[in-house]
Design a binder for these strands. Sequence first.
DNA 1: TGATGAATTGATGAATTCATCATATCTTCA
DNA 2: TGAAGATATGATGAATTCATCAATTCATCA
Lengths: 128, 128
Amino acid sequence: MFSDREAPLYEIKANLFKGLAHPARVRILEILADSPGQSCPVSTLLEGTGLEASHLSQHLATLRRHGVVTSVRTANSVTYSLAHPKIAELLAIARTFLLDTLADARQQLEAASALPGFGTATTHDGAA
Amino acid sequence: MFSDREAPLYEIKANLFKGLAHPARVRILEILADSPGQSCPVSTLLEGTGLEASHLSQHLATLRRHGVVTSVRTANSVTYSLAHPKIAELLAIARTFLLDTLADARQQLEAASALPGFGTATTHDGAA
DNA sequence: TGATGAATTGATGAATTCATCATATCTTCA
DNA sequence: TGAAGATATGATGAATTCATCAATTCATCA
């Protein structure tokens, strides 16, 4: 098992996505991305996410381990920042993709319900 | 439990990243992204990834469920395509971010080993 | 029709990740 | 010094995800 460096890039990439693969962590990154300087203290994240402190801290640790955020202690508070502007870009692109996709899905739903034999039309993709 | 639509965007986003969070799936997407028309038959993916057929198929099913790829059956083979150009963009940005980050890490390692008391300098970030 | 190739689905134990709770560290201030 | 606030770390059972193997579907062609 290699811990980055030495591993093929697609493994490292997968690992990065794994780091982003949790609602709480995405939320944290969104808050950071929207904050001035893409950084803010833990207390703000605490409010913004509504998580319990230790839970938040664990997600922050995960994000740190994945190199997605950095932290600096100032007096008795810790400030987190996005480690790289590309992270914000990643989130923005995911957003565009999802909005496009969701719009399409809604449209297909409407089109489907306008069809004659409506009621149990399956699209081979499940999700009744 | 909501299955997209109705869920806050950050949950849907996290879900998308979860779909990308596996080396095999990233590899599959990379191959598709580099193929003409961002699509290719399963047989090509089979070769490209070196996975066992059923294993590959399961990952493809996951990607389909996440709306990241689409599939079309043509005669006795199935062709997969990226569902949206933004997916390729997502991978490209991840790549840039990682290359930047890895370069920095290497640089820090070199800088560290040039220091006087080398051997056990901890950066509070772990990774001895 | 039925054998063959291509791809998918199902089932199961092993490995990871998650949420929760208790405890520990670090800093300030009385 | 030591009490209090702000964060972080550890440990544990519950829930997910993964890898592997067997079985199934779909289309072609003899």
